[in-house]
Design a binder for these strands. Structure first.
Lengths: 118, 118
DNA sequence: ATGTGTTGTTATGAGTTATAACAATTCCAT
DNA sequence: ATGGAATTGTTATAACTCATAACAACACAT
C-alpha cells in the first residue's frame, strides 16, 4: 500500500516523508526543525538532508529564529506543491477504500484513525 | 504499528521477515528458496542471508532437491519458535484491534484482508 | 542436443536510519 | 545574574536494508 503511494507521489518529485513534513509545516507555520522531527519520528540528524532537499527545491524557507533554532515555513511554490501532493493522496485514499467491500467501507477510516490516536 | 510488532518479536530473536518466511515454510513444506522469495516479494539474492540466519539458528533445514534447487523445511526447534512467534502475533493483533472502537471492530479485519486480495 | 530459463550464490552499490560528537545557544535553578 | 544542564542544527560515520548484476550449475522443452 505504501509503495503504491510512494509511486504516485514520485512524479511530483515528492517522497512520502517530504509530503508529511510539508503537511506539518503548513499546519504549524514557524515550527522548528527538531520539533518537526519529533512529530515525524525522524532523528534530528536525518532532518538535515530532508530539509535541504525541500529548501533547494524552493518549497520551504528556513529563517533564523533565535540564533539556535530555525523557523520553517512553506514558500508559495511549496504550498502549491503540497496542494498537488494532497490531491494525489486523496486519490490514493479513494483507490484504497474502494478495495474494501461496501459493507465495511464506512468503518474503515474511523477504525484506522483510532489506531494511532492515544 | 509495524515497529510495535517488530519490537514484540525481537525478544524471540525473530525479525518480521523471519516469521513470515517460517509461516510460509510451515504451510508449504519442501518449498524452494526462490519460490518463497517470490511469495514474500524478496529478491532471490536477499533470501540468502535470511535463510542463512534461520539455518544457523537451527530453525530450518536446507536439503538439496535436485542439484539446483533446495528444499526448505522447519526443524522441530523451528516449529516451536514459530509457535511462539504466532502467539506473539496473535497478541499483537488483539492489542491492535482493541484500539478500534467496538462499533467498527467486526469490520476491521475483513476490510484489511480485502486490501491485498486481488 | 541444444538453447532458454531457473536456481542458489557472491559481490557490490545505492539508499535509509541510527549513533556519536561538536559548537553555539537557550533555559532554569539557585 | 550566573553557572550547569539541556537543546539546536549540523557533520561524519557506521549499520542495515534492498536492488542489480554477474556467474556457474543445472533443468527442461522442443
Amino acid at each position: 500500500m505504501m509503495s503504491e503511494l510512494v509511486q504516485r507521489l514520485a512524479p511530483l518529485g515528492l517522497r512520502f516523508a517530504d509530503s508529511s513534513a510539508m503537511m506539518l509545516i503548513a499546519a504549524n507555520p514557524g515550527i522548528t526543525a527538531s520539533a518537526l522531527g519529533r512529530m515525524l519520528d525522524i532523528q534530528r540528524a536525518n532532518m538535515v538532508p530532508l530539509l535541504n532537499r525541500l529548501e533547494v527545491a524552493g518549497l520551504i524557507e528556513r529563517k533564523p529564529l533565535n540564533g539556535k533554532s530555525h523557523s520553517l515555513a512553506l514558500t508559495e511554490a511549496g504550498q502549491a506543491k503540497l496542494d498537488q501532493g494532497e490531491r494525489v493522496i486523496a486519490e490514493f485514499e479513494t483507490w484504497l477504500i474502494d478495495r474494501v467491500p461496501e459493507e465495511h467501507r464506512p468503518h474503515f477510516k474511523p477504525a484506522l484513525d483510532a489506531l494511532w490516536r492515544d
